[in-house]
Nucleic acid binder design. Structure first.
Lengths: 158, 158
DNA sequence: TAAAAATATTTTAAGGTTGAAGTAAGTGGG
DNA sequence: CCCACTTACTTCAACCTTAAAATATTTTTA
């Protein structure tokens, strides 16, 4: 680890940070695109659909549309379309919310839960394969670093 | 660094690798979405457009459509639309390739070069700001790690 | 050289993404 | 009560993305 240094427009570390970002992005896109391919080939699905089901699998009562878009950090309108298609496929249901006719509670169906369980297991094994060169300790260290980063980004945005 | 360990479906490190990936993805999306916002607000542009211009800025003779999609690792059809719009905006030109009437050489115009120079400078400073907590040495170390990862992913795909 | 194969690009259909505008339904102050 | 405001969600237009089909052109093969 190097000592902290001041952040200036022409900081000599600036170029190194840019290179870091470009590599970060490249690796992230490579992994993501492999996951998208696998989801498509093995489950005829997509990453956004997987993300929606993953979010709902953590809430047995389901989530309202607005909560879903909050959790996933995507726009409201976006969630509408993805949920529409998952409902058509029988993986999700929209349940009316008592005392509020504007809102919907979205939930996994039993079929959706089964499907997601299969996808999640496959997903974990794809990642395990792709990140095989990281040992547990190593993964935890870098993971912590990334969490710090994400926190600092959120603070900067406020 | 931890010792290398075998990769098995129920490797105890598997969950740790999954957590690493989820954090990785979260951080990457946070940075990317900030860049997209900035490009939109400050330059009325998008990340794919920036990527195309960045690729072309490294080749003063320009690139053929297929080379562009190769370099950017996106589909052929995708590049067509993005280049169309950049041509409309006067930032790019399609130049006929002698002796091959199927192909086009795509190049930045002078105006495109100026525009990209401004965007690239802003882009570097956004990254420098967001990744400020990484020192030069630190950024280089993690960057190397990511490059290894990307190489190993490419090998696995073959 | 004619037919077949390969190459370069565009078009198409289906989905994902956003911000902004639109619709419907709840909430509150006067 | 009613008018303004807010909230929950959907629709819309524009762009990005892919795989697959379509076009046009060049190269290879028989």
């Amino acid at each position: 680890m190097s000592a902290p240094s001041p952040i200036l427009p022409d900081d000599p570390a600036s170029k190194e940070r840019l290179r870091l970002w470009l590599r970060f992005l490249k690796a992230s896109r490579a992994i993501e695109s492999q996951i998208r391919d696998n989801l498509r080939r093995e489950f005829a699905s997509t990453l956004p659909r997987f993300d929606v089901m993953a979010a709902l699998s953590r809430y047995s009562d389901g989530l309202k549309m607005s909560q879903l878009s909050e959790v996933l950090r995507v726009s409201n309108g976006n969630v509408t379309g993805i949920v529409d298609r998952l409902v058509e496929d029988g993986f999700l249901v929209r349940v009316a919310v008592p005392n509020d006719r504007r809102a919907w509670q979205v939930r996994l169906t039993e079929r959706g839960e089964k499907e997601f369980a299969a996808q999640a297991a496959a997903h974990e094994s794809w990642i395990n394969e792709m990140l095989g060169e990281f040992g547990a300790q190593d993964a935890a260290n870098i993971g912590n670093r990334l969490e710090q980063l994400e926190t600092s980004l959120r603070e900067k945005k406020q």
